[in-house]
Design a protein around this nucleic acid. Sequence first.
DNA 1: AAGACGAAAGTGGTTGA
DNA 2: TCAACAACTTTCGTCTT
Length: 304
Amino acid sequence: MIDGVPTCPECGSSNIEHDSFRAEVSCSRCGEVILESMIDEGQEWRAFDADQRQEKARAGGPLSFTKPNRGLSTHIDQFNRDDSGKSLPAYTRNQMYRLRSWHKRASTSTSMERNLKTALHELKRIISTLRLPHAVAEETAMIYRQAVRKGLIRGRLIEEVLTSCLYITCRKRRIPRTLDELAEVSGIDKKDIGRTYRFLKDELDIEVPLSNPVDYIPRFASQLDLNGKVQEEAKRILEEALHMGLISGRGPTGVAAAALYISSVTLGEKRTQKQVAEAAGVTEVTIRNRYAELKEEMNLTVNA
DNA sequence: AAGACGAAAGTGGTTGA
DNA sequence: TCAACAACTTTCGTCTT
């Protein structure tokens, strides 16, 4: 199944290490992360005839879902020169010619591949802008592939579907990003993301847990430069509020913001409602309303 | 002057007939 | 498809520190 020894494209070393959990492959000599399956690695040019190509097609997809044609994405120029600038001998020229045509066919042969190419490029950009872990990109790409396979893209923008896939992943992994945040980096309208998200969730039968205000605490807190103690207190308040049924039906970010506001005040690390509101992406009024509800129901003493 | 508070009216999304 | 509805926002006047 695997023909040829994989080598690092950076330094040429064959000391390749696999991290199966993250589906990452890296070179142990130079540290280059290859993010690639051994099957795709480097040796694709050996498929010189249809039978071999067939065989490779059945050998399975790459381990990294974000790199559909890695190893084939090398550019081969048209000048037929070796690296010292001399013309290649006829035999090699022919070989290069065949190599180029296979390369081209393999990289952009199907509309699915073209679609993925666009989408994954965009995904990479969004993931890095939001500083989300690579595993999120992998999972998002996997969901996106399912969507493409089921023909769910038709009539929708690639970016729209992609962003919705990312939203699903974030919700599933409990690394919450609000629709507003995703809308901002993707340039897709919030309500379009939401609508497509629901559509995909139904069509692909994906279970998405309800979003939990607690998940927002660390991020908001760090934006407000609040320490761990304040975070713990905010979480404790949310736990209690949850048991008392004070959370259902309320926007998770608003509740999280209120809990954070309360704990910042009680622990003498006070932030203004305005600051908290800004970090959480809600208004001061919402914080006040949640705050009033929590205070009312949980006889909290919120005095500095 | 800045922050907190709350009333009132407006907005966008969900739900159920 | 439409109306009712809840959550949230915007705006603004008032009170407190």
